[in-house]
Design a protein around this nucleic acid. Structure first.
Ligand SMILES: NC(=O)c1ccc[n+]([C@@H]2O[C@H](COP(=O)([O-])OP(=O)(O)OC[C@H]3O[C@@H](n4cnc5c(N)ncnc54)[C@H](O)[C@@H]3O)[C@@H](O)[C@H]2O)c1
Ligand SMILES: NC(=O)c1ccc[n+]([C@@H]2O[C@H](COP(=O)([O-])OP(=O)(O)OC[C@H]3O[C@@H](n4cnc5c(N)ncnc54)[C@H](O)[C@@H]3O)[C@@H](O)[C@H]2O)c1
Lengths: 246, 246
DNA sequence: CGCGATTTGTGCACGTCTTCACAAGCGCCT
DNA sequence: AGGCGCTTGTGAAGACGTGCACAAATCGCG
């Protein structure tokens, strides 16, 4: 980086409180870089080039370099990036240095799978509570956690700060659950129900909708089939690897 | 639309083969509009204004109008959009007029939930086959479908054209499964495993990664907490409703 | 020590997406 | 028929994201 003043705002030594405000698109890619870096670390690499890491993360190398440059200069020219250092940096920026508590609401079909997902713990998240409204499921024990009634949410939230609420209820109940989560002080929600949630502006909502993904694929499938039926029938797909988020 | 020549390429009467090539961002929002429209139809609305539909879909009304304008002019000024007509149009563009066959590979924790998901059928998709590699799960019957060995995929694909393959195996197996799907002629893949897939350019891949969503939420949580700790402690969130996609 | 090979960090140009603002069109009421 | 209010469709401008291409920096080696 061009700035190289000694004890300034974002010095790399020790705790670095000043978060550079990253482009949203960059934030969305950092977790992918992190996963690729962990893969590198397990394979024994000490350093990676932007080219190598970009390939592992499925992105353009220039894009990766620009993304990483936003966090500061943690690479060495002619060598590459120090894997361990970069992991630490990204984990710090993403706020993964503290283990975040996750509450799951709606322990049905999908909820059961989520509750037992080990990908939570391995990425710095900790499922601390399961909630449902159905008396039949309440009391059930899943992976050491007992399903509690949704009305106990305020009590649980009072003793353990819940960082993220996950909604896996039917769409009809999702808004009510979101309201309860917000009332309990939750400011980040991951919503699996196919509906839009209305929340205060300080609350972040992200949605995962399987049907939408399928319909987007369906569109491209449709386009491909009508294209190949036309005269200049080159079966030109969009791009080999497509982004999820965006 | 401004063009109004009688028997031209994209006349609204009958089958409309010419697909206008929509911006990718628009395609990603169409399913959300479709869901909102179905909701309107069930509530008894005959027409909706762009304002009303936009609110139901959680987007800006100008954006919605521009998106819809790409499919042609299906609104009436001073009135709004005909709900039923617009549903038909969007479903046509997304290729949902034909029911698409879905094959699910990996019937574990997550796979069980997906196999029993009724949101598939209600949106024009039909799960036609379940595959796994574990002898213990093969033969199991889920919602009327029997789990078959992954090696039977070519045989199944030969008798039923598979439009979309869903991968719900561990990450280590995902690439191999993707290769098998591609070899069987599948050109659209939805991947739940946290890894990048390498596929030929004519194959579309979309990824759903729970951990990435959580980490993005974690970032904003982190940013919020450091912001409120600073002097001008306005707890200014990003936006009330955040996009899922890109 | 100097030089070449290598790789980062970034200025710049380009494309895409979003948002505003408003003319054009439609229906209804008088 | 004419006018008025409402809503769509769209040009234009700005914000944002992407990718090229290259200077600057670093390492290894002779
Ligand atoms: N099953 C899937 O594979 C899948 C995939 C994508 C999205 N989804 C969506 O995820 C959601 C859950 O799907 P599912 O298949 O698990 O449904 P499900 O009916 O099996 O489970 C829903 C659970 O939510 C509980 N619930 C209902 N109202 C509640 C409330 N007010 N408070 C707390 N809990 C409440 C129910 O008791 C039930 O246990 C749905 O919105 C569905 O559309 C499911
Ligand atoms: N469980 C969740 O809530 C969840 C959430 C998000 C993402 N994921 C991801 O989804 C994937 C599946 O998760 P899970 O919890 O269901 O795991 P799981 O271990 O319960 O199930 C995986 C299944 O895939 C089968 N399988 C393994 N190799 C195979 C192969 N080569 N061909 C066919 N089938 C094969 C296994 O036999 C098993 O039945 C993982 O990649 C996981 O990271 C899971």
């Amino acid at each position: 980086m061009s700035q190289h003043r000694p004890g300034s705002t974002s010095g790399p030594a020790g705790a670095v409180p000043a978060l550079p405000d990253l482009p949203e698109a960059t934030v969305a890619r950092l977790p992918e870089y992190l996963r690729a870096l962990h893969h590198c670390a397990e394979t024994g690499y000490e350093t990676v080039s932007s080219e190598g890491l970009a390939a592992a993360a499925g992105v353009n190398s220039a894009k990766l370099r620009k993304d990483l440059s936003h966090l500061g200069s943690y690479g060495t020219r002619g060598v590459g990036y120090d894997v361990a250092l970069l992991i630490d940096q990204i984990e710090y920026v993403l706020g993964l240095t503290q283990r975040r508590a996750v509450a799951l609401v709606g322990v049905g079909n999908l909820g059961h799978a989520l509750a037992g997902y080990d990908g939570f713990a391995s990425r710095g998240f900790h499922v601390v509570a399961l909630f449902d409204a159905d008396p039949a499921t309440i009391g059930e024990r899943i992976h050491g956690l007992q399903v509690r009634h949704i009305d106990e949410l305020p009590a649980v939230a009072a003793e353990t700060a819940i960082a993220i609420g996950v909604i896996a209820t039917p769409a009809a109940a999702a808004q009510a659950v979101a309201d309860q989560l917000v009332a309990a002080g939750v400011t980040s929600i991951l919503n699996f129900a196919p509906c839009v949630l209305s929340v205060p502006p300080n609350v972040d909502v992200r949605k995962v909708d399987l049907a939408i993904e399928l319909q987007i694929l369906s569109f491209h499938e449709h386009r491909k089939s009508t294209l190949t039926a036309l005269p200049g029938g080159r079966a030109a797909g969009t791009s080999g690897q497509e982004a999820v988020g965006s």
